[in-house]
């Protein structure tokens, strides 16, 4: 668990981060969003002390980060940046092994961990271990960057625009992959992004920042339905609101008893995807099946629309 308490960074008279407090629960993903210059990256960099706070503190599992030597602190925290910062003079395997080597793991342990991570990210060790970063595609570089950050099994992963350099198709895949790995490992993630879709897609809670201040820290749905300030409303996009809301909800929540013709939707699909299918096929209702394929009911356009309405 990360507790950020009254964190402030001033350069001269200007406060880049101004008295920000929030808490990220164990095993969840928090996204920090805002326009550029809002202080997102500085906030993130204060967590691993790449930037020293002017005031306030950060607690990781109750321990003040100031009480831990800088380097030791960073060994425990995964860090992924835009562009990844892979070391061009080191192979993929050596890149991933960076922190374990700093920690003095023995050689066999490191080799095993590298192989495990390459497998986890779907990179064949035989093919990729010996490659240099410049021989990789953008998507592969991104995966190596995340694998490197996770190498020493950190409980916390900090990510600064980790998908910013990817094209939309690969970006979406990389986000899904990150989400599934995060769920599997139970890593706590703090992610900085200016892409609202990314934040809604990945985050359990979203922190909205503007000019150094934290405007709202809430679950995605709450951000949509109860924006704290006009700026938040504008940032989440008022025109997109219903669709964003629908994409946060699963078919499970809107399923009704009954049957219908056609290929069934899954309970795990988002309402956004379900509505999309209904419109495209020109149907009012479609059947719904559970994960094993057994029919559990049906879903209708009107029920979906009701879920996308503003809640007073």
């Amino acid at each position: 668990m990360i507790e950020i308490e009254h964190l402030t960074k001033r350069y001269g008279a200007a406060a880049i981060v101004d008295d920000v407090s929030f808490r990220v629960e164990e095993g969840t993903v928090a996204a920090v969003v805002g326009t550029s210059g809002a202080g997102k990256s500085t906030l993130l960099r204060m967590i691993n002390r790449l930037v020293e706070p002017s005031a306030g503190r950060v607690l990781i599992d109750g321990q003040d980060t100031m009480a831990i030597p800088e380097d030791a602190l960073r060994h425990r925290i995964g860090y992924v940046i835009q562009g990844y910062g892979l070391f061009p003079h080191r192979t993929v395997a050596e890149n991933i092994a960076t922190v374990p080597r700093l920690l003095g793991w023995d050689r066999r342990q490191i080799a095993a961990r590298v192989e495990e991570l390459l497998d986890l990210f779907g990179l064949d060790p035989a093919e990729f271990a010996k490659k240099f970063p410049h021989q990789l595609s953008g998507g592969e570089q991104q995966r190596v960057g995340v694998a490197r950050a996770l190498a020493a099994r950190p409980a916390l992963l900090l990510m600064d625009e980790p998908f910013g350099a990817l094209d939309p198709v690969i970006r979406h895949k990389a986000q899904d992959e990150l989400l599934s790995i995060q769920r599997r490992l139970g890593t706590t993630v703090v992610l900085v992004t200016h892409d609202m879709n990314e934040a809604f897609h990945l985050a359990d809670r979203i922190a909205v920042m503007n000019q150094g201040r934290l405007l709202q820290y809430a679950a995605p749905a709450e951000l949509l339905t109860r924006p704290a300030e006009a700026f938040v409303e504008q940032l989440v996009g008022s025109a997109e609101r219903p669709f964003r809301l629908l994409s946060l909800m699963r078919v499970q929540e809107a399923v009704e008893p009954g049957t219908a013709e056609g290929e069934p939707l899954s309970v795990a699909d988002t309402l956004h995807d379900a509505l999309s299918r209904l419109i495209w096929l020109g149907r009012e209702v479609l059947p719904v099946a559970d994960a094993s394929g057994a029919p559990v009911g049906r879903i209708s356009v009107s029920r979906i629309l009701a879920h996308g309405r503003a809640r007073a």
Partner: peptide, 18 residues
């Protein structure tokens, strides 16, 4: 030297000497 590589090195906890 690429600033990203340096930032990453710092972020992973390499000492100035390392």
């Amino acid at each position: 030297v690429s600033p990203q590589a340096l930032d990453a090195a710092k972020g992973m906890g390499m000492s100035p000497r390392q």
